[in-house]
Design a protein around this nucleic acid. Structure first.
Lengths: 304, 304
DNA sequence: GAATCATTTTTGTCCTGGACAAACAAGATT
DNA sequence: AATCTTGTTTGTCCAGGACAAAAATGATTC
């Protein structure tokens, strides 16, 4: 009946930038170089992107985050893109998910209450640290993959993040240990807006008696410095998601290292810095959640 | 000793855009029209902004958020800007803060544990709803004003947000009422990243037996629609901070109204939509936190 | 075969200066 | 007091050129 569905559902270049994370300049230069996207023009000569091209741009964005290069993906058909996404996602994991499958089914809008109950139950059963390492982290990875494959909608991923946040923040609050050592400042760089990595790290550290202060995401470099120095912290912990450009992570970390006094340790964790230890002198690369505990033990041993 | 302090502390135009929220195009056009800012150029001819100009741009940004126009503020001296900020901030409140003064002192990096304890204590004493309306909301406003006046640092404001989040999310989780009516979907538009307004609304609604699902911030319009329809919600609640342009809030809300079936109510709250009820037919403008309860009562009365 | 280095290609970001519509202020009219 | 001009301010968009950082490729050495 409603043939054009949403007749007004067209996107300005600013709207596309918001929705896809691709800069306006990038969108224009792709059009010039690769012949895609091909927006229409309005009466004023300004670009008007149809929804299907925006969807395709979102796919492309995800492929770039997984290491593909524009020449290979901009201009491919939607089918080809979908095939590439399968290639990106399946081979590394081999086992395509097992235990988390059950929970993954609950990442649906209409099942939010069930997901919440299941998460709290798992937390009770496993304790905070195992819950984070064995349930939350694999589930978050599974949701990310499912989103890449289009099996999970944007609002469902949002909802998942919110619910995990609720559970983790409650649990962390219940473990409060004032005066513990070391004093850890947790945050992310301004371009990184994913908060779950931070919360998971905090959840690993707090039960060990460390006293964590989280600034949340997107803290400017200069402010991280002033907070770390002014607050008398022993460790600054940074979290990087898969989408953070590895090169920039390294540059930013080295710049922060130069700004901070040497007695303040820097711990960096997340997909973008994995296996980059040799390029990051003076920084402790945390390879995974359990490695957080190793880093903590090392710090305490060095202080003993 | 260290004469230039941070010799490398200079900003590219992209860094300034991140830190101030002013678009690159805007920064360039201000330079052309008003003669400010006046960045140096690097060897490559690209703009390099000194830190003091970035600080001034941040002041200007805050004044614009308070309704000033660029012609009057871009190009004024820092002293004049500071005076304008006092004018903006003081007159409306008259009483420049009273009860919250004590808590405001705790919004310091080194007093985070005290702030956390004080918040939890106030929550216990007042109950969730009074805590939100009488303590959190005024305190958040006071922190915002103190930030405008430069009395609170960026990391301290971040920390404040984090701590309030921790307390509110714990408390909301403890009130879980599955199956309650109405079913409320809470989120913000993609340009709005402040989360406290959402949490405060949720904290008002949950004790009344409403069942709230929060998607967090920055949900694209189309996804709000699909979530509301697919999840069978009765109400969609949107939150707008003072920084959200009023005009865009109205346009976006009307667009969402047109996308949603009429039986789904829209509630909009926050500084950007206050007093805009007459321009928002079909939308319930929530004037303040206590008005949330009135909106809820209206909805239930209409369904009775 | 793997690691290091030099060269070429790819790719994102920045530049200038012009254009224009939406937002706003102010005055005129009902 | 509300609504409708008219003029000014202001943010965003455009084109198309330029360039450096990143990645791929190939050459050389251990």
């Amino acid at each position: 009946m409603n043939a054009p569905a949403q007749p007004e559902a067209c996107f300005s270049i600013a709207a596309v930038e918001r929705d896809t994370g691709l800069a306006k300049d990038t969108l224009r230069v792709w059009e010039r170089r690769y012949g895609f996207p091909t927006p229409a023009r309005d009466a004023n000569g300004e670009r008007v992107y149809p929804p299907d091209q925006v969807d395709k741009l979102r796919l492309i964005r995800r492929l770039l985050d997984h290491g593909r290069r524009p020449a290979g993906v901009v201009g491919a058909s939607v089918d080809e893109l979908a095939r590439m996404l399968d290639d990106c996602v399946c081979p590394p994991g081999a086992a395509p998910a097992t235990r988390e499958d059950g929970l993954l089914q609950l990442v649906r809008l209409h099942r939010s209450a069930e997901l919440n109950a299941a998460l709290r139950q798992a937390l009770m059963k496993q304790g905070l640290q195992r819950f984070v390492a064995d349930t939350v982290a694999p589930l978050a990875a599974a949701v990310g993959e499912a989103w890449v494959r289009g099996e999970v909608e944007v609002p469902e991923e949002h909802l998942f993040t919110e619910q995990v946040q609720n559970v983790l923040r409650s649990a962390i609050g219940a473990h409060a240990t004032p005066g513990g050592q070391p004093r850890v400042l947790l945050t992310t760089f301004p371009e990184e807006e994913h908060v779950l990595g931070l919360l998971m790290a905090e959840a690993m550290l707090v039960p060990e008696g460390a006293s964590c202060v989280s600034l949340g995401t997107r803290t400017p470099l200069a402010d991280i410095r002033s907070a770390a120095v002014g607050g008398g912290f022993d460790v600054v912990g940074l979290s990087f998601s898969i989408a953070y450009p590895a090169r920039q992570a390294i540059d930013d970390l080295l710049e922060l290292r130069a700004m901070l006094p040497p007695e303040v340790a820097i711990w960096a964790g997340g997909a973008a810095v994995r296996d980059k230890q040799k390029r990051l002198p003076g920084i402790r690369v945390v390879g995974g959640l359990d490695d957080t505990l190793a880093a903590l033990a090392e710090w305490r041993a060095a202080r003993a």
